[in-house]
Design a protein around this nucleic acid. Sequence first.
DNA 1: CTGGATCCAAATTGATACTG
DNA 2: CAGTATCAATTTGGATCCAG
Lengths: 130, 130
Amino acid sequence: MAGHYDQSKCQTVSEMLARLGDKWTVLLIMRLRDGPARFSELKRSVVGISQRMLTLTLRALERDGLVNRTVHPTVPPSVEYALTELGVSFSEPIEAMGGWVFRNHEQIRAARSVFDERKAELDKKKLIKI
Amino acid sequence: MAGHYDQSKCQTVSEMLARLGDKWTVLLIMRLRDGPARFSELKRSVVGISQRMLTLTLRALERDGLVNRTVHPTVPPSVEYALTELGVSFSEPIEAMGGWVFRNHEQIRAARSVFDERKAELDKKKLIKI
DNA sequence: CTGGATCCAAATTGATACTG
DNA sequence: CAGTATCAATTTGGATCCAG
């Protein structure tokens, strides 16, 4: 029993979960929930993202079928990104998770303070012993 | 508007989101939903995790107040890890997300195939041009 | 058994410069 | 505007050895 937490057994699942890890995917999906946007709009919305990371993240999302990329053949070119149906569906659990973190981050901060302080004390005692 | 996807504004939120990214956190939380476990049990359950990563991930979860670490003063020592109340609460959105990925990974695989094949064709054409 | 410390290889990422 | 390419820097992870 309990043998099903094997990431190698469910490659895709674990890859998707891994994708969420990179700082930007969640932020980008949350942004796209508000509606489609162009490349440069996204770059402005998601503060701190580099052009490179924006491109890479969008490509990955596109590849997974979560985001649609439509090029308008204008000059200068304009490209619009939007969540697909699958993407919208996926954004729901993401939103739930984001919401949880948002609601509970105070508690987390508090827990961290306690932990760090306790650790600092232990380190002090250890220093005396050594 | 749309200025709230700024990770620097909500350090904790973005950190938590980032923590999910590392391969192991989600797997570990899912495992701990089944009940408390000892270090070595966890190591066996979460296939592929190294000792180092297990330790690091557990410490991080403990620090965030999601996991409780109780040492039983036996010889040899035995340490039990369990989700805290906060951890259980957090595990719900996680589970939802995991569930979604699990249910939809076929669609994702399909999307990837389409994308990759299309890209392969484009690359071929480009090669001819060059 | 649990887990800290260290060393090293590999993967990510950011800054920068360049292009259609 | 929307990227691609390249390089340097940081991060990350695994392997190994050691200790309470």
